[in-house]
Amino acid sequence: MFECRLPKAEVLKKTMDALKDLIKEAVWDVSAQGLSLQSMDSSHVSLVQVTLRTEGFDTFRCDKNIALGVNMDTMQKLMKCASNDDNITLKSEDNGDLLSLIFESPNGEKTSEYEMKLMDLDIEQLGIPDQEYSCTIKMPSGEFQRICRDLSNIGESVNITVVKGGVDFSAKGDIGNAKIHVTESSNVDNEKDAVTVEVNEPVNLTFALRYLNFFTKATPLSGQVSLSISPDVPLVVAYEIEDLGHVKYFLAPKIEN
C-alpha cells in the first residue's frame, strides 16, 4: 500500500507542468525515501530527474517499493482538476494497476476522487555520477527563462561562457547575433534576486535552446535556478522545490565538429 498527502496540489501541478513537454511517459518510483522519477526525452539528449522527499509530505506511507508507470499527459490532465489550494492524496495498492488522486478543498466541503490507469513501462535508467562542477551559477529563474526565450529569436543554440564575476549567454543566427551578460550581484536584499557565480575554472560550452526552453517550464516551482557546468559533460539545470525536493534537468552539450 502506498499513500501520501500533500497540503497543496499546486506544487504537484507545477511539477507536472515542468515535465510533460519533455517526456510522454515515466515511472514514479515510490520508496520510504519518497517519490522519484528519472526519464530521458525521446531523442536521448536530455534527462529529467525529480525527487520529492518523504519529509515534505503531510503523511507518507509506503509498505513496499513500487513503480507507478504513468502517461504524463493523462496525469497532468487529472492534476488540472485540482484547485491549487486543495490538498491532494495519492494512493495505490502494491500490485494495483490504478493510481487514485483525491483532491479535498481547504474547507473540506468538496472531495474529488480520480482513478488513473497505470502502465507497465520499461524505462531506461541512467547512472548519473555525483561530481564537482567547474562552474555553478545561481540566478533568478525568471531571468534565465527570459534569456532562453529571447535568444531563441536569434539562434538554435546558446553559448555559455562563465568567467569570474559573470556569465555571457550568446547566440548566432541568420538574422544576426546576440550577447547577454549577467554580472554577479554585489549586494542583494532579496536572495531570490541574487546572481552568484562560482568558478573553479572558466568554461565555454554550447547547448540547444530548444531543450533549455523545455526546462524553463519548471520556473514557477522556484524563484532561483542553478546551472552547473563543466567542460565536456552535460549541463545540470536545477530547480529546488522548497521543503520537498527538486527537479533537475541534464542536457548534453553541442560539440564543434
Binding site: 539528449v45 534527462l47 552535460p234 548534453a252
Partner: peptide
C-alpha cells in the same frame, strides 16, 4: 557546425 551529443556518450545505463 556544432553537433548535438547524446546522453549515452556521458552516462551509462544502470
Amino acid at each position: 557546425i556544432a553537433c548535438q551529443q547524446g546522453l549515452f556518450h556521458y552516462f551509462s545505463e544502470t
